[in-house]
Amino acid sequence: MSSVEVNELSVRAGNKTLISEVTLAFEPGTWSTIIGPNGAGKTTLVETIAGLRRPSHGAVSILGEAITEMNERERALRVALVPQHPVVPSGMSVYDYVALGRVAHHGLFHPASPRDRAVVESVLERLSLVEFRGRDVATLSGGERQRMVLARALTQSTMVVVLDEPITGLDLRHQMNMLELMKSEVHECGLTVVATLHDLTLAGQFADRLVLLDRGEVVIDGPAAAVIRSDELAKRYGMNLRVVDVDGADVVVPVRHGDNVNGA
């Protein structure tokens, strides 16, 4: 059974169609990345998968259950979200922030159980956040902060994790670190990751599968290497793109001033 099924999903805001009849399925233990130009509907799609938007038509189901049939708590036990612009509640400690991921487990009227605390400790350990546990969240650097937001999502202990542009504003090393961390979680815990990324090179290197979205519709859906090399990619971005092989890794390079938009 697929862990996430998106079935003929349409999402409208007013009379504008953001997502149009998208059908996709995501398997356990895989990393899929949604790519596409600005305004393609990537964030709308992942927010709908995370249950923050209601489908106008069609359905999203997580582990076989329709997302619109769940309440917030049931949903939070099945899918976790790393938002594009997380709110940083100044004054809260890193530990307390990461522990927010356990709220769906212990509930709003009970304190964290020993098991909840053990999960938080283990995630802090895995993400090298132990030394920051007592720090005010507002004092962290961009890289530390993103790691902390990821930690909160992982403490939710869900099988599905949705990442919306998780590396925005990070330097190259921290971008790689962040994605490597997530990749090892996918392997070790058999997670299903659905991410959006602007960086096509990183998208190609970290995802098992790429889905190219444009104007709310799926254009290509396939193994990362194939999608990166397809002519359609350059066409949809409206520019000249080349894929260069560097030590076995695909690197997508934009080339300035090309008349031939289909690349070399």
Binding site: E72, R75, L77, V79, P83, P86, L100, V103, R152
Partner: peptide, 9 residues
């Protein structure tokens, strides 16, 4: 939005 995704109605 984030508190909803953390399970708070």
């Amino acid at each position: 939005e984030e508190s909803r995704s953390l399970g708070v109605p």
